Simulated scan of single mutants.
Amino acid sequence: MFILTLTYIAPLEEVDRHVPAHMDWIKAGYASGTFLASGRKVPRTGGFILAKGDRAGIEALVATDPFMVAGVTTYDITEVAVAFTAPGLEQLKV
Rank of each mutant, 00 (worst) to 15 (best):
M1K: 11
F2P: 09
F2L: 10
F2T: 07
F2Q: 10
I3R: 01
I3Y: 08
I3C: 08
I3W: 06
L4C: 08
L4S: 05
L6E: 05
L6G: 03
L6T: 10
T7W: 13
T7R: 14
Y8E: 06
Y8D: 09
I9M: 09
I9R: 11
P11Q: 08
E14N: 13
E14V: 15
E14K: 14
V15H: 03
R17E: 03
H18T: 03
V19W: 10
P20A: 05
P20H: 07
A21M: 09
A21S: 13
H22P: 04
H22W: 11
M23E: 12
D24F: 06
D24M: 09
I26C: 08
K27M: 12
K27G: 09
K27I: 10
G29A: 12
G29M: 07
G29Y: 06
Y30H: 13
A31Q: 15
S32V: 11
S32L: 14
T34Y: 03
T34L: 11
F35K: 02
L36K: 13
L36Q: 14
R40T: 04
K41T: 15
V42G: 14
P43L: 05
P43T: 07
R44E: 15
R44C: 13
T45H: 02
G46S: 08
G46F: 01
F48L: 15
F48P: 13
I49P: 13
L50V: 07
A51Q: 04
A51I: 10
K52Y: 05
G53A: 03
G53K: 04
G53M: 04
G53C: 04
R55M: 09
R55P: 03
R55F: 04
A56W: 00
A56G: 01
G57Y: 04
I58E: 04
L61R: 14
A63F: 02
T64Q: 07
T64M: 03
T64R: 05
D65N: 06
D65Y: 07
M68H: 15
V69K: 07
A70D: 01
A70T: 00
G71N: 02
T74Q: 00
Y75Q: 00
Y75S: 00
D76M: 01
I77S: 02
I77P: 02
T78G: 00
E79V: 01
E79S: 09
A81P: 00
V82A: 09
A83S: 05
T85E: 03
T85A: 07
A86V: 04
P87N: 09
G88R: 06
L89M: 13
E90D: 14
E90M: 02
E90I: 02
